[in-house]
């Protein structure tokens, strides 16, 4: 098990969110979509220019930009 930032995850890789390190509007927006510690996510794909990223959370698909994904720490299996 090791901790990485969401940006570094590969397509189809899964992991468990351990921390969301941002406050303010961005932090709230991230959390209200269900990206909170303990949630399992899977990277579903990336846009043609590699940014934004699409991920599966709780059975739905969300998109966010790489610089927003940088605030999210994930624990992944090695």
């Amino acid at each position: 098990m090791s901790k990485v930032l969401m940006r570094q995850m590969a397509k189809n890789q899964s992991g468990t969110i351990t921390a969301v390190k941002v406050g303010g509007e961005l932090g709230r927006r991230i959390r209200e979509m269900g990206i909170v510690p303990g949630t399992i996510i899977t990277i579903q794909g990336r846009a043609p220019l590699n940014d934004p990223v699409a991920l599966r959370v709780m059975g739905g698909t969300l998109t966010l930009r790489n610089n927003e994904a940088d605030h999210i720490e994930i624990e992944v299996e090695d």
């Binding site: 509007e25 961005l26 927006r29 991230i30 979509m33 934004p52 699409a54 739905g60 698909t61 969300l62 998109t63 966010l64 930009r65 927003e68």
Partner: peptide, 9 residues
Amino acid sequence: TPFIMEMPP
């Protein structure tokens, strides 16, 4: 503005 967006089915 944050881009966090839902991709509806």
